[in-house]
């Protein structure tokens, strides 16, 4: 009884380790590409499932509450990429915020996102009156890989 549970636990653990060793972790060590890196892939980056990360370019957000259509631009400071997503974004999503989208680049060069994640910085500040809040996200995305 106790043994069976232990064996089941060991099998699950072996499975997870196996998955990590054979591809899972390798693919995820670089969790997302910046617009610059994705664009550098050229046509190789089109149509394949990929994660794109960067900052939401201030002023680029267009949200249609009727059709739940969300359009914005992701920038890494060097290059930028238009993103189209469907559905309400996480509450912290806004201009200047770090963001990671899952999906693929469409034929028109627009990133069709199936999943939208907000990337928070390690800064926690109580808002002060008149504070320009989003400056800190400029340093959010690491430019160098592993």
């Amino acid at each position: 009884m106790k043994r069976n549970r232990v064996i089941a636990a060991l099998v699950v653990m072996a499975g997870v380790f196996g998955w990590l060793l054979f591809g899972g972790l390798e693919k995820n060590v670089v969790f997302f590409l910046t617009p610059k890196e994705l664009l550098a892939k050229g046509t190789d980056g089109v149509g394949v499932a990929v994660r794109l990360g960067g900052q939401v370019k201030p002023g680029s957000v267009q949200w249609d509450a009727k059709t739940l259509d969300l359009r914005f631009t992701v920038t890494d400071g060097a290059r930028e990429m238009a993103v189209r997503s469907t559905g309400a974004p996480p509450q912290m999503f806004r201009d200047g915020m770090g963001v990671i989208v899952e999906g693929r680049v469409g034929a028109g060069g627009v990133f069709e996102a199936t999943n939208l994640m907000v990337k928070h910085s390690n800064e926690y500040r109580a808002p002060k009156p008149g504070e320009e809040a989003h400056e800190k996200y400029k340093t959010l995305i690491k430019q160098t890989g592993p």
């Binding site: 957000v61 309400a88 974004p89 996480p90 509450q91």
Partner: peptide, 13 residues
């Protein structure tokens, strides 16, 4: 852009 989904914020608690 703040308050796209205000009800989510209410459910933060």
């Amino acid at each position: 852009m703040t308050g796209i989904v205000d009800d989510i914020v209410a459910s933060n608690w």
